[in-house]
Each structure stands twice: as structure tokens, then as C-alpha cells.
């Protein structure tokens, strides 16, 4: 059974709490400083998207162990408006030019696996995984 913990996102300060949780878990898994910084940046980005676009949601962190392969999963979920055009959001230059920071392509680059499930009017769930090498 994988270990999972979560932080609810309502205010900007909750982003800090989510980062803290992610960093602690990343350390436990054994990630080095650079990867810890990458994982927390990805959490920041996902948590900020929840805060800005959905208003509320949660960040869950799960430590993974798949047959001796260790890793960490960030699961960001909300019941916001959903992403109308995922393809566009995943394009380089789309969110950065609008001043939104690294955007979804950034999160994808910081992590190893990346998955978006979104439904208009229902919400969005983004799962991002990084494996320990």
C-alpha cells in the first residue's frame, strides 16, 4: 500500500504547505537537492493553477514503490471549470507568453510522467510522477 497524504488548496499560503509536504516526502524517498527543487516547483505550479483557476482543490503526494523502483507522485485535483483545450495548454510558449510561469509543459519537463484528466464544468485531475534514478 502506497503512502499518500494531502493538502487542501484554498489560499496562496496553502501552496507553501503543499510544497513543504512534497519536499519532506521527496527527501524520504531519497531525492537529491536538485530533484527536490524540481518536484516542489512542479507542486507550486500545479497548486497555483488550482488557486488561480479553480479556486479550491487539493494536492496529494504519494510515495511510490513499484517493484523496487521508487518515486513520488503529485496528484492535483479540483472541481473547477476544467481545461477547455488541453492541447493548447500543453504547447510551449502558450502559458509563458501570458505570464503564467512555467505552465503545464514546465511541469511535464520537471517530472517524468504526466497525465491530465479534465472535463468541462466538472474539474481537472493532473498526475505527475518522478522516479528516483
Amino acid at each position: 500500500m502506497a503512502y499518500r497524504s494531502s493538502v487542501d488548496i484554498h489560499t496562496e499560503w496553502d501552496i507553501v504547505a503543499a510544497r513543504q509536504l512534497g519536499r519532506n516526502e521527496a527527501k524520504k524517498v531519497g531525492f537529491g537537492t536538485v530533484d527536490q527543487a524540481r518536484i516542489t516547483t512542479a507542486i507550486s505550479e500545479l497548486a497555483r493553477n488550482i488557486y488561480l483557476y479553480a479556486g479550491a482543490g487539493k494536492i496529494e503526494i504519494e510515495r511510490l514503490n513499484e517493484g523496487g523502483l521508487f518515486g513520488i507522485a503529485i496528484i492535483a485535483s479540483d472541481e473547477g471549470p476544467g481545461i477547455p483545450d488541453v492541447r493548447k495548454v500543453m504547447e510551449d510558449g502558450y502559458s509563458t507568453s501570458g505570464g503564467l510561469g512555467a505552465g503545464m509543459p514546465g511541469v511535464k519537463r520537471l517530472m517524468d510522467d504526466f497525465r491530465v484528466d479534465t472535463e468541462r464544468g466538472k474539474g481537472t485531475k493532473i498526475t505527475a510522477i518522478k522516479w528516483l534514478r
Binding site: T33, A37, T40, D92, G101, A102, R109
Partner: peptide, 24 residues
């Protein structure tokens, strides 16, 4: 140095994005 690493993550991302845009 850990603080500086934190500072550099987004520069690293900006670089990667730049490289991918140049390729495109």
C-alpha cells in the same frame, strides 16, 4: 547553494522551452 538551486529551476525550464521553440 540550495537556495540558489531553487532560484535556477525556472531558468532551466525557460532554457528548455527556448530550445523546443527553436526546434519548432
Amino acid at each position: 547553494f540550495d537556495f540558489l538551486i531553487e532560484m535556477m529551476i525556472r531558468y532551466g525550464l525557460a532554457l528548455k522551452e527556448h530550445q523546443s521553440l527553436v526546434k519548432r
